[in-house]
């Protein structure tokens, strides 16, 4: 990272960052750092540079640095974004204001408390639910799914649980109990999966007084989602499905059948065998 200083083509950008440490009892305050920014440098690179060179006490969450783990969500210049997915100079060449995601409690500095968020996610039972429990536990084959059936839900399966959508949602802002766009989109992701039979089990969590009917389609979640999940669209589909089923205008989905896997697997002789494991179980 130190080559940062020696690079000629850099611009000085002021990082104004919210600092908060509950252990000191002090109120959150803003602190400024000057960062030499080169073309292509991401907000996460900037934070790493500050931590390495200016202030090791700065705290945030990140892991994959490539927009797949969902841990680096922050409120950057008034917009919820992933720090690793956004280049500094594309946002500003003068000043970056970085705060933790709104609508969450702060644990420290830029670290939001995502505990309630994951609880909401779990509440909608985000996994395949089948009536044939025996088959599910001891599978005799695979559940068939056509490419068309896959496209029904694949977009919603791209969610990386970053929480940006909840931080943008005006309904979550007024009522933190609201199940929220992420969890509701996941409910639809499984309801619309042709292999799933769990819509009835999800009804309680999805259609209670803090569920889908609280969404007024502001669409802020879909605006900020870094993966193009479009959670507000998923909620509309969830509502439409409930509406049509209540009026008996939509039939329940047909069952997905198990297709037996090939009895005997014959390996391709051209492919050499995998080496033996080096670690014993």
């Amino acid at each position: 990272m130190n080559e940062n200083n020696s690079t000629k083509n850099t611009t000085t950008v002021i990082f104004e960052i919210l600092r908060y440490n509950p252990e000191t009892g002090e109120k959150p305050k803003m602190q400024e750092y000057n960062v030499q920014v080169y073309k292509g440098m991401t907000v996460l690179d900037g934070l790493n540079w500050i931590k390495e060179n200016l202030d090791p006490s700065l705290v945030w969450r990140s892991s994959c640095r490539m927009g797949v783990c969902g841990s680096c969500g922050m409120f950057i210049n008034g917009y919820p974004r992933l720090a690793c997915n956004n280049q500094i100079l594309k946002i500003s060449n003068k000043k970056l204001q970085i705060k933790p995601l709104p609508n969450f409690d702060i644990i420290r500095d830029l670290v939001p408390d995502l505990e309630g968020f994951f609880q909401k996610h779990k509440s909608v039972k985000p996994y395949l639910i089948r009536k044939d429990i025996q088959e599910q536990n001891l599978p005799t084959g695979e559940y068939f799914q056509s490419p068309d059936e896959l496209t029904n839900y694949i977009q919603f399966a791209y969610c990386i649980k970053c929480g940006l959508c909840l931080s943008a949602c005006p309904t979550v802002a007024t009522d933190e109990r609201f199940t929220g766009p992420q969890a509701l989109a996941q409910a639809w992701r499984y309801n619309s999966d042709s292999r799933d039979e769990g819509s009835d089990e999800r009804i309680k969590a999805v259609h209670d007084e803090i569920g889908a009917s609280r969404c007024h389609f502001a669409g802020a979640c879909s605006d900020v989602c870094p993966k193009g999940v479009d959670p507000s669209f998923a909620i509309q589909l969830l509502k439409q499905d409930f509406f049509l089923k209540t009026l008996k205008l939509r039939k329940d989905e047909k069952e997905t059948h198990v297709i037996p896997t090939a009895k005997k697997y014959v390996p391709n002789p051209k492919i050499p065998e995998a080496p033996k494991p080096t670690v014993k179980k």
């Binding site: 009804i203 259609h207 209670d208 009917s213 509502k239 209540t246």
Partner: peptide, 12 residues
Amino acid sequence: MRESKLWVYHLI
């Protein structure tokens, strides 16, 4: 469940 039903009636 109940809430979404009330919402369905709201739309109707």
